[in-house]
Design a protein around this nucleic acid. Sequence first.
RNA 1: GCCCCGGUGGCGGAAUUGGCAGACGCGGCGGAUUCAAAAUCCGUUGCCGAAAGGCAUGAGGGUUCAAGUCCCUCCCGGGGCACCA
Length: 815
Amino acid sequence: MLATQEKWLPVWDDLAPFRSGDPADVRPKKYVLDMFPYPSGDLHMGHAEAYALGDVVARYWVQRGYNVMHPIGWDAFGLPAENAAIRRGVDPAAWTYENIATQKASMRRYACSFDWDRVLNTCDPEFYRWNQWLFLRLFEKGLAYRKPSLVNWCPNDQTVLANEQVVAGLCERCDTPVTKKKLTQWYFRITDYADRLLDDMAQLEGQWPEKVLLMQRNWVGRSTGADVVFEIEDRDAPVTVYTTRPDTLYGATFFVVAADSDLAAELAVSAPETVGRAFNEYLEQVRQTSEVDRLASDRPKTGVFLERYAINPVNGERLPIYAADYVLADYGHGAIMAVPAHDQRDLDFARAFGLPVVTVVDTGEDDPAGSGIATTGDGAMVNSGPLDGLDKAAAISAIIEILHDKQHGEATVNYRLRDWLISRQRYWGTPIPIIHCLDCGEVPVPEDQLPITLPRSEGLDMKPKGTSPLGGATDWVNVPCPTCEGPAMRDTDTMDTFVDSSWYFLRFLDPNLETAPFDGEQAKEWMPVDQYVGGVTHAILHLLYSRFFTKVLFDLGYVDFTEPFTRLLNQGMVVMNGSAMSKSRGNLVRLSDELVENGVDAIRLSMVFAGPPEDDIDWSDVSPAGSRKFLSRAWRLSGDVTSPVGVDPQGGHAALRKATHHALHEGAHAVETFRFNSMVARVMELVNSTRKAIDSGPGPGDPAVREAAEAVAIMLSLVAPYTAEEMWERLGHPPTVARAGWPEVDESLLVADEVTCVVQVSGKVRARLQVSPSIDEDTLRELALADANVQRSLDGREVRTAIVRAPKLVNFVPA
RNA sequence: GCCCCGGUGGCGGAAUUGGCAGACGCGGCGGAUUCAAAAUCCGUUGCCGAAAGGCAUGAGGGUUCAAGUCCCUCCCGGGGCACCA
């Protein structure tokens, strides 16, 4: 196995069959992209699966005559490098580049069909200078801005997190419960693109897994409703609330403001002193509640009455105002009108605080005041003045019109999506290219000063302490203001590493370009990515951000498409005995061990053959030894062929020729529909047929045997490159089989000259006939009826109906 | 709680539009080869039955000449969302 690697790797390096950058190359282009890895160590089983699957696609399109760009790089910024630095005192850069070298060598041995001329590392200044450049473009457009806000804070990593990076209240990286902190941070205005992120999904329908589209739709969370303006007693300015149920306005019995909102604080200040004290106590308690606890679904409702009142604009009723934590400060306007009869959360609160419940929609269900179950369905409006008798939809439009006329509200849209918080208080990332000047404020770093490279880690205190380690690099931080030359300071935060991956696919077009992040002409030729392959863990994070960046770049005129990834394949995970592999569980399978034991080809084949690519693979169900056995069976075919290279297959053994062309045809179709396991099954069938032909059919000298063996080598080259190359050589061809080309399928060989016709009586199979595929219905019916078994089953009964689907099926229905 | 997606032999999984259920493989069993083992090769392998035949795609019902596939109800598993007004 090792000898085979030693033999072919230099040959492949030399021939570079997957080089894609030749401007004279006339082949049509295709861009196949695997999600790039984080260099945390050597490759593991998960990488082995992902890259085996991506390789099938890339190598297939090369065989089909395309100039396939299949690049690889490293998502090289991020916390593990820094944590290693803290634990072991190594330089994050040195640690990272060492791991990259290890992974790169492993990928080469794993025979990944990457174009090695296009490698990039996001931690190279040549890459991240363009992060800074893009940041400045967004800053100019007002799409990058700083604001104070209550943000997600990971106490373990000592950094802020974007909303997308908090999973069920836990830090996505380290599973530590996330807390909230009031901080001024940098954001990208992704919410400006909420509608387009939703609407452009129409382009992806059928091309992306439905599941991913659904998750993104939920994440953006568009809802339609109305803003309603409420006057507040003893306050000049009114307060606007957002509601999806303006039709229930007459059912509002109280008013709630988010406890942690500025409005709550303000209302409490001008309330009686006892209220102020109670409020402050409550707020303190809310602040100490972790995100995990806050999200617990069965938590009782809590709050404080502020002894203030809002006025219902339609009936002038006084609604008591409460501060509570079930209303979120950063959604809508941070305040709601509460309609306990028709909203479960409001009802729970009303019952806890003894507030009235007024039903305004008669849904025919039990009265919520008694049942404790809010009714949310449709029905006739009651107790609602001019709305009485209308149904939900009519009431919504009627009330919006009324509010609009009185200037008390209007129809609006709201989103669950929040702006993307991109600053991080950590070292190993892209410095934010802003200089803070006391006089000039936030000053962008002039473009000719890019990149702002990271200061050396030596001498910096890397320990997480809530502020960026970059703050300790005084020489680096203190700079003159680019505008006024006065003393100023660099921004010391670094960018979220998801910024890197939001556009890296464009950098592959020319990773060494020094004048721009990418070349527009090349983007026209190659983009968007035709096939993206990666894990479903990025369903929201990376894929949403990349879609956002692409739209921004489109608006800025840098690209002419609005979606970056035309087609998406999510591969599953490799697990062991039903659960994710981990050292602590003791079910870790080491890729390197597997490779030593069974070889690269057998591991790749096992990954591809295990099942559909999107399903998880349980390694305990997989037989790499079986894969190895099959590969040597296939390989042996190539040694048995005795006909000369280039022999005309015409006139060769007809049945085997049909088998070959059938396999090529079905195999191609299987690859194009992501049924890679079925493609392998078709190759296995062809190997079996060829073996039979050699041993007991027309013999090894038949031209059809050579044709079959060559087809096996070519199909196998998608999965098992070493075995395929060995076969190709033994069959008398020069390397490399990767560029041999997919043999043209002879359509005439796809039609069988005899098919099996199933004859049923009352839907049960009673006979099978060998018939010509062109047999006509009448002949087939007579033939079927004449069959002895059919006659026995009919048992003298008359045939009431005969369904004839020539040439494959006849069904007699007796009277 | 809401929304998706699944449930097919001992196991992983096949099955264009409703038309031979179980392709291909793993494992098992039997045999050949071998002093023996490994490797390899051949055969066999859904269940019941001696056979004819019958029964089988989570359970139950329905549509149809015909259902793994379509419709309804339920059970189980996996995933996503979860105070977003």
